[in-house]
Design a protein around this nucleic acid. Structure first.
Lengths: 342, 342
DNA sequence: CTGAAAGCGCTAACAG
DNA sequence: CTGTTAGCGCTTTCAG
């Protein structure tokens, strides 16, 4: 037996579908008496509104699309929670995509989202080493009037788009200042895949901060493209074998943080006695690791809340001014940085 | 300007909408020549198919709904990845819900999902201490013919439903055996909120295993309803103050695991020297914690893959036999269990 | 306050 | 191989 529709309710009550529609949508123009009866029989019949029909009719799906750069990243635990917190009370639903750091997959999902009729998109856009990205597609969507808010990542010089990101340069500068205060001048940085917006920014922040603080930059200590994680081992081992370890390392994402701890232990490099470490992304476990990790903490829940709030307001008012938010990261001091000031 | 539709393409080529539809859907009945032209002008016009219309027409949304018990649980990192891995190639999309351990929220989302026309639902059903749940609603859906696969959690004695869960009793028994082998007889267990399926099962496993292995059960060492996390502190402190610590503790989820480590450290209870610990849910950090944690590891990625595969096959064939899968957990031995055999 | 009719975009059945 | 027609379920005029 098929799902009952508005028509079935109309028929059982001998009224017209339009009246049923009005009654169920809480719109005016129906007597209280009738409305009550409609609602009642709707329940009896087990009626559930068909949102596809409604969407088709008034082109409002009450769905927003999320494009995740990689759904396995713990980033999404807090981010999704933040988004869901603001969406749920407003009855918006989430269509979840996972780009897996792959621009082709991202493109496929973006097209699906549009076809599905999402009212807006929350995206952390992928870009590859060679600079390839789906910027053109995002631009097309922008022209079509699809509200888009970038979170965590964005495109440079595309000021028409809304975004909510962290000040990644400042985040690294904070880390550098902390290291400098603790007497470190020989500082390395481990970066994951090239091309990723946040990683590029963190590297820029490193250069900027070193200049600012008068910290010498040494080519071998800028370890780029640390991926997959075994590369962490190679690089660390090489640095150790050549007796060329910096006194401190800054990690630039949670995964690298984790693997530096892991492989340093295997290589018998003592943290923080031999090398100090500042982690990136404060997963709850960072406090429990040995040693508890001094970490740059991003306000991820906030990114979720703010970006989704921004998206909703743009959905409601397409012609509002660009919303560009840059949040500050925070340095959580624990025990992985040793003071070596003389 | 509105989004172009199939009609617009038809008009510019002076053909009928149905031909365009056939051409774009790769169905037979169109000359190659025409098909080529259709596809071409579709691209020129920036046509994107309207899935709401398609769904309305053939009641196939190519969307499945996921109900998460609590989206902040790291469980969902691997689970969602597993699901997405199987869904993406088959062009199914994910509508994500977050029940937040709240049956009312779960119910709201379930109704949304149905209204949205999802073709199936992957759910970890919530149940409260008092036994309340949305079982009735799930039953209604079952009657309506909506495919449902439960993952991680399920209902007892509801054998009509498909499910993919872990053998939680066995998981705890494995932990007990390991402890017994290492000479432990005074064993405590820390459980989170009452009523949760997995937690109840783990407690049952504890009783069963103790009986099996001839381990005495002591009331004060069965610490239930550890929530919120500060409760971990209270309980541990009390046990310590009364000089009543067991020699080993089994944690029953990742959060409790984490907080036992955390508060044990605060209370200066040495793991594993004073108390051995077996954690539950193997987050990658468990290896980095001090000490590296012996942990019960659930095959979460598999749960995602298998449950979504099961769901898709039920969507394709509604009348197949029930699919009930129980996966085994695995004990990862590290260094948080001390051998105290004399 | 209620009903009739048209249409959102797409597809499937039937004709030609 | 292509076109015509009708209809999926809902809402929104416009009449009454």
């Amino acid at each position: 037996m098929k799902k009952p529709t508005i028509k079935d309710i109309a028929k059982t009550l001998n009224i017209s579908p339009s009246t049923v529609s009005r009654a169920l949508s809480a719109r005016p123009g129906v007597s209280d008496e009738l409305r009550r009866k409609v609602i009642e029989t709707a329940e009896e019949l087990g009626y559930m509104k068909n949102l596809s029909a409604q969407t088709l009719k008034n082109s409002k799906s009450k769905i927003i699309g999320i494009v995740a750069f990689d759904i396995r990243n713990p980033f999404f635990l807090d981010f999704l929670k933040g988004v869901e917190d603001v969406l749920f009370p407003r009855e918006y639903k989430i269509l979840l995509s996972n780009a897996d750091e792959n621009i082709d997959k991202e493109r496929t999902y973006l097209n699906w989202l549009i076809s599905q009729g999402v009212e807006g998109i929350l995206s952390s856009p992928i870009s590859e080493k060679n600079g390839r990205s789906n910027l053109k597609l995002y631009r097309d969507f922008y022209k079509m009037g699809v509200p888009i808010v970038f979170y965590d990542r964005m495109f440079h010089n595309q000021e028409q788009f809304d975004y909510v990101v962290v000040d990644n340069q400042d985040a690294i500068i904070q880390a550098l200042m902390h290291l400098k205060e603790n007497g470190h001048e020989n500082i390395g940085i481990f970066l994951s895949k090239k091309g990723i917006f946040t990683i590029e920014e963190r590297l820029k922040g490193f250069f900027k901060g070193c200049k600012l603080l008068n910290i010498p930059v040494k080519r071998e200590w800028i370890c780029e493209d640390i991926y997959p994680h075994e590369k962490t081992f190679e690089v660390l081992k090489n640095l150790k074998d050549t007796n060329n370890l910096p006194t401190a390392i800054i990690a630039t994402n949670n995964n690298i943080t984790k693997y530096i701890v892991y492989y340093a232990r295997k290589l018998d490099i003592k943290i923080p006695d031999e090398v100090s470490l500042i982690g990136f992304d404060d997963t709850p476990e960072n406090e429990l690791i040995d040693p508890p990790l001094t970490t740059v903490k991003q306000p991820i829940l906030e990114i979720g809340k703010i970006s989704s709030t921004a998206l909703l307001s743009r959905i409601e008012d397409r012609y509002t001014l660009p919303m560009r938010v840059t949040l500050k990261a925070e340095l959580i001091e624990r025990e992985s940085v040793k003071c070596i000031k003389i």
